[in-house]
Computed example of a mutant assay.
Amino acid sequence: MTLHCTWCFPIRTFLRDTARGLFIVTHSGLAMVGLSAAALVVALWWQPDWLNQAEGTLFDWLRERQVLLSWLPENTAERATAVDLKDLPKSQAAVAEWLGRKYKVAPEPLAALVAESHVLSKKTKLPPHLILAVMAIESNFHPYVQSQAGAQGLMQVMTGIHAQRYEAYGGKLAAFDPISNLRVGAEVLADFIKLRGGSIEEGLKFYLGGYELSEDGGYVAKVLAEQSLLDQVAAGVNVPTQ
């Protein structure tokens, strides 16, 4: 009995000291977290521009990785569809200005499309100027165009065939929203290029007419030529619009 009591006291002391130490460390850590959070709130209240910038950075990061689409479909009616050219990198702003002159479209909405094409390029592995070139040839950057076959919007996506792809954006009417149509069209094109063994030329042909297409009427050459011009514009070359 005496031996048992001799061991009990040190064990109880050790457990009590350990628990006290954990409490102090945890309490201090939580206090530091609380103080940091309070300091952050005060800083954001004092400098609201920091909050706007942080929110923009966070949502851009989530949007690029398509994190939000699975549970929070985008409300396109609340999203600005134009971007100030001064907010773009110089090469992207030059492309937007050049496209605006060539297709007689306001450069600010085009700037949003140019910026989005670069975001989509990271996801789809398609060159951003290829995506823009497809829009140029398909619709001349007019988002409400509809073909007799039922292709709609900037990328002339066959909405009836690809309606499921629009569900994350609120339904098939999102085909007429420029950014939604651009995203769906880029995904379709990327899938078709993979389907055709990674060939951009064959993927473009399939995008134009599927398995039934025998002659593209120069479509692929037009798209690739437009892409080449955009590459030159982005590189700082003075390219005429005619």
Rank of each mutant, 00 (worst) to 15 (best):
E138F: 00
H142F: 11
A112E: 15
W98E: 09
A168E: 05
I161Y: 00
H142P: 09
E215N: 15
I193L: 09
P127W: 10
P107C: 11
A186R: 02
G218P: 03
P128D: 03
M158N: 01
S180A: 15
G198R: 06
L126K: 01
A80S: 12
Y169Q: 04
G100T: 14
F141N: 08
V188D: 01
H162F: 11
Y103L: 07
N140G: 11
T159K: 07
L99A: 07
L213P: 14
E97R: 14
V184H: 02
I200W: 12
Q92H: 13
A136C: 15
L182C: 09
K125N: 06
L113Q: 11
G170L: 09
R79V: 06
G217E: 07
G198F: 08
N181M: 14
A151P: 04
V134T: 12
A94I: 04
A174V: 00
A111P: 11
Q156P: 02
K172F: 00
D191G: 01
Y169N: 10
L126N: 01
Q92T: 08
V184M: 06
Y207C: 07
P107T: 09
S180F: 06
S139T: 01
H142M: 14
G160D: 10
H142W: 14
E78P: 03
E108G: 02
H142G: 11
V105H: 01
Q146I: 10
E202P: 07
L88V: 12
F141M: 06
F176A: 04
V184W: 02
K104M: 13
G217M: 05
L154I: 06
L120I: 10
V114W: 01
Y211A: 15
E187W: 02
Y144S: 02
V145L: 13
M135N: 03
K205V: 06
T159Y: 01
V83W: 08
T159C: 04
T124V: 11
A151N: 07
I179Y: 03
F176D: 08
I137K: 04
T81L: 01
F141V: 05
H118Y: 07
L126H: 05
V105S: 02
T76H: 13
E187F: 03
Y103C: 09
A163D: 13
S199W: 01
V105W: 03
T76Q: 05
D177M: 08
P143W: 00
L173S: 11
H142I: 11
D84N: 12
A94G: 09
E202H: 07
P143I: 06
A111H: 11
G198L: 07
A96R: 02
N140H: 05
V145M: 07
N181Q: 14
N181V: 10
I161D: 00
Y207P: 01
K90S: 09
D216N: 11
D177T: 13
A94T: 05
A96L: 04
L113H: 08
Q148V: 05
E167N: 08
S214A: 14
Y166E: 10
M135W: 00
A149I: 11
